[in-house]
Simulated assay, not measured.
Amino acid sequence: MIDEAKVVAGIKIPDSAMAKAATELVRDTETELLFHHSRRVFLFGALTGERKNLDYDPELLYIGAMFHDMGIMDRYASDTERFEVDGANAAREFLSAYDLSERDVDDVWDSIALHTTPGIPQHKRPTVALVTAGVEMDVLGIAYDDFTDTEREEICSCHPRGLRFKHGILSSFCLGTIKKPQTTFGNVKADLLSYMDPTYKRENFVDIILSSKWES
């Protein structure tokens, strides 16, 4: 079904050599849940771009969407970086084999690294803004009613959420953070570990300031 659906909800799935290589890499690396989530992120992001009349590059949006959770997987996970940064680095390495401008590669990197940092991506260029828009729709339901029933149903028919997607995506996020809880400081994954890991202790920004070595 994945390869047969060339157009989903009016959005053409990119089929260049680069896009096909990304699809195969992500499908071979990620869980089925994350693969389908990533494709939905692309589709919801692209529909958002169409609705807002943004001049976006579907190929760059596709790479950003497909790689945005790659840092969760052991193959790409570092010991110290946020999984979002690990995924962004994986995308940059992948794109080095293709003739893209530095600006385009940077946009893809930003789209992945910033996708869990609310309040910033929507002010960036379309690739960055739309990856986050797709993530926010699929995970948080933000702008849910801006999509038609037909659009949502067609996307989820091609790339199903499953009965327990909400719990599954939380478990996936936990996998990407539980071994390096220090990377949750200042981002939404602190909420995740507070819920998923009874041993986790959230760092407090105020405490860090007040306990620093500065005298005043």
Rank of each mutant, 00 (worst) to 15 (best):
L61D: 07
I72N: 01
E24M: 12
D79G: 15
V105W: 01
I13M: 14
L54R: 05
I11F: 13
M70C: 13
T117F: 12
L61V: 06
G71M: 01
K124C: 13
A17I: 13
E50D: 15
M73Q: 11
I2E: 15
V105C: 09
D110W: 11
D79L: 10
K52R: 15
L33P: 02
R92E: 15
V26A: 02
I112H: 02
T23A: 12
K6C: 07
K6R: 15
A65R: 05
L34M: 14
E32A: 08
L54Y: 12
E30Y: 08
H115G: 10
L95T: 10
A19D: 03
E32C: 06
D69Q: 03
V26W: 08
T117I: 14
A97Q: 13
D99V: 06
D69M: 02
T48Y: 08
E102S: 15
T80V: 13
V41H: 03
T31N: 04
R92I: 06
H115S: 09
S78G: 04
V8P: 06
E81A: 05
H115F: 06
I13D: 02
T80P: 02
D106W: 03
L33H: 05
D79V: 03
E102Q: 07
S16A: 04
G119K: 12
F35P: 01
D79A: 12
L47D: 12
N89G: 12
S16I: 09
Y62P: 03
A21F: 05
G45L: 08
H115I: 05
G71Q: 04
R92P: 12
L100Q: 08
E4V: 14
L33M: 10
D110S: 08
Y62V: 07
H37C: 08
